[in-house]
Design a protein around this nucleic acid. Structure first.
Lengths: 195, 195
DNA sequence: CCTACCGATCGGTAGG
DNA sequence: CCTACCGATCGGTAGG
């Protein structure tokens, strides 16, 4: 039951925001009453923190694959960005939650990004600097800033997924989401690799 | 007074979200009471729509510059993206509001994007296709999807401005926001132009 | 522009 | 896991 509540809260927080979601709505969507929910989670804010922690646990599961991708033989780039895309597209609520938390609680999110994302960014930056020294990667790339761009791109693409189709011409073409993902990978790649 | 209310509502909606901002808080920040605010705006939702319209009015003011940039002699690219960056960095609340509305009311935002942004995107796409025919721009670029990436990048960079510094190493270097903007322009440029 | 007030809903508690 | 209930706050109205 605790996990059903977590799942429902994740879905509703992602769709409607923390302030836009009442405890009664979460309870109803799992078939119980509000006081029963508060037996499993002491307060609404604790439920929010647990939702975040649950997502970070999945992030920690994905990290080994991410690091393996960063140190493997070749095409590390596609592997790393591919793992990021996989992580967020596997559950678009993850991207929406991150964006909402960044907007609603920037200070709290800064600390989380520093402790859970920045170490991995620095690893990728080391890889980029080595590639630059070898001439494989553009010398003018700012490694940290480049990583921020790619993260922005992946998270924003998934979070705004429902809206981006509005900027494409009539529905005769390929799946807009697929086109968008492909172009995102191309943009990130062409901005990094020399030719 | 009406404009003071609009300004306060814009700031608070951007910072705390629509559901996270009470009418009393908006009224207090301009030194009046809630019923007085409801004399100027019939309902909270009307106030929200007016805040959006106010931002779109500024967008319409910026469009001529954007279109002029798109059809000028050379370096159209830097001019267009520069105008977009100018528009959103001139008031970061614009980017935050757009992101919040996309998350909170995707259907409403789809219509807005179709009517107010897509025509301009199609113009830029025409420019890209001509450049591709001339060999100046990468043939493999998907014009519509590329525009979506650039918009995502600009809006997300400004909206998450307070948090991205957390992913940079210690404060010895240049201004993170400046580094981020420069890299964003470089990424967008290198993904478009042949060399 | 105000005071006074409305019903509804909020997060949370008591007690079983 | 429930019913019953709490004070606080919500958006909005009456009336001046």
């Amino acid at each position: 039951m605790r996990e059903q509540i977590l799942a429902a809260a994740t879905r509703l927080f992602a769709a409607q925001g923390f302030d836009g979601t009442s405890l009664a709505a979460i309870a109803q969507s799992v078939g119980i009453r509000k006081p029963s929910l508060l037996y499993h989670f002491k307060s609404k804010d604790e439920l929010r923190r647990e939702v975040l922690e649950h997502m970070l646990a999945h992030w920690n599961e994905a990290l080994p694959r991410l690091l393996a991708a960063a140190t493997s033989g070749q095409d590390q780039f596609s592997a790393i960005v591919g793992e990021m895309v996989t992580f967020f597209t596997a559950d678009a609520d993850r991207a929406r939650l991150v964006v909402r938390e960044v907007l609603d609680r920037p200070d709290e999110m800064r600390e989380l990004l520093e402790s859970r994302v920045r170490p991995w960014v620095e690893l990728v930056c080391d890889y980029i600097r080595k590639g630059q020294a070898q001439g494989r990667l553009h010398a003018e790339t700012d490694p940290e800033a480049y990583c921020v761009q790619v993260i922005n791109l992946v998270v924003a693409s998934v979070a705004t997924h429902d809206c981006i189709g509005a900027l494409f011409a009539g529905g005769t073409g390929r799946d807009p989401a697929r086109r968008n993902t492909d172009e995102m990978l191309r943009v990130a790649r062409d901005a990094l690799f020399t030719r």
